[in-house]
Design a protein around this nucleic acid. Structure first.
Lengths: 178, 178
DNA sequence: GTCTATAGTGGGATAGAC
DNA sequence: GTCTATCCCACTATAGAC
């Protein structure tokens, strides 16, 4: 009953994430997940204790993937801030429903592996060089992504300009050249 | 049947908005709204054609209030950008559930009064002086507000610094002084 | 590990009487 | 303008047999 670490449990999470990504949060039901696995919904409860635990597992998998992608994109990059923005924007656009699940509500922090949240944010901290600038930069990127995903911006070319002007504005001050 | 302009219809919208603001989107059900009015849920359909039309009406009322507040805050202000940010942040924090309903999903544009969306955004356009900078500034403010509402930032003092550094970064370049 | 059966709750919406 | 009755849908979760 509810062996969260078992192979089958991991498979349930994987399938559930697939349903979420393809069909959106409204389709993420125990019935739909079971159907995808070819079993009945009640059987899921032998592997996962509850729906919210399952959502936490999906969120964890999203953060792990995002953290790896942000670290890979920025390490050794000539322009780490631009590299981070590109990777972040790509992640959100590739997984819009997952991204919303990860950001829409307060994080279920007790259910996440310790350090994961910080590890995901670290590359941006390094790129901005200052915690308060990192928060501002994150807010800008998060806001841009959401406004894009909800179709808020007119479809002229100006949104790309908005991205670049925002990125330039968030740069750390250039170090003095002696 | 479904006289959307009638007094009673406006009252339904008002009560529904109250339920949303006090109890969140999960409580915004036809049954709950009816209960608040002391009638049965099916009776609502004599005044409102559907739940989604009711949501559109709530969204409209939110935009009308926001537009008025942003215009009042910025007109004649010494620092229109700072004034806009203060008013926007205050609106979102005063009406978090309404704010999310207004921004979480694609706007039901066909159901909104023409020009309302643009009127709401106009004060920020004026304050930034440039459409692409306005989008970047909006994204920053929207992102900050959401990250605050979802409890993403640690509760140290740095978030206020993030607000100010972001605002300064979004300012239009100073006009050349002859 | 899966099944059936079921409890319990909630939702949006319609028909037709008054 | 409100009511009752009702439909049909959906969901999470548990118990107990196999």
């Amino acid at each position: 009953m509810a062996d969260q670490g078992s192979v089958r449990a991991r498979q349930v999470v994987e399938v559930a994430r697939g349903v979420l990504e393809r069909e959106g949060a409204g389709a993420l039901t125990m019935r739909r997940i079971a159907e995808e696995l070819g079993i009945q919904a009640p059987s899921l409860y032998k592997h996962v204790p509850s729906k919210s635990a399952l959502e936490s597992a999906i969120i964890t998998s999203g953060f792990e993937e995002a953290a790896a992608s942000f670290a890979a994109a920025t390490e050794g990059a000539a322009d780490p801030l631009a590299a981070f923005v590109t990777a972040y924007r790509a992640f959100a656009h590739a997984h819009p429903h997952l991204y919303r699940l990860m950001t829409d509500r307060p994080l279920p922090r007790p259910d996440l592996p310790p350090g994961l949240e910080g590890r995901t944010a670290a590359p941006l901290q390094r790129a901005t060089g200052d915690p308060s600038r990192a928060r501002a930069a994150w807010a800008f990127i998060h806001g841009m992504v959401l406004l894009e995903l909800t179709g808020r911006f007119p479809d002229d070319g100006l949104t790309e300009q908005a991205w670049s002007s925002g990125i330039e504005a968030m740069r750390p001050p250039a170090p003095p050249v002696p």
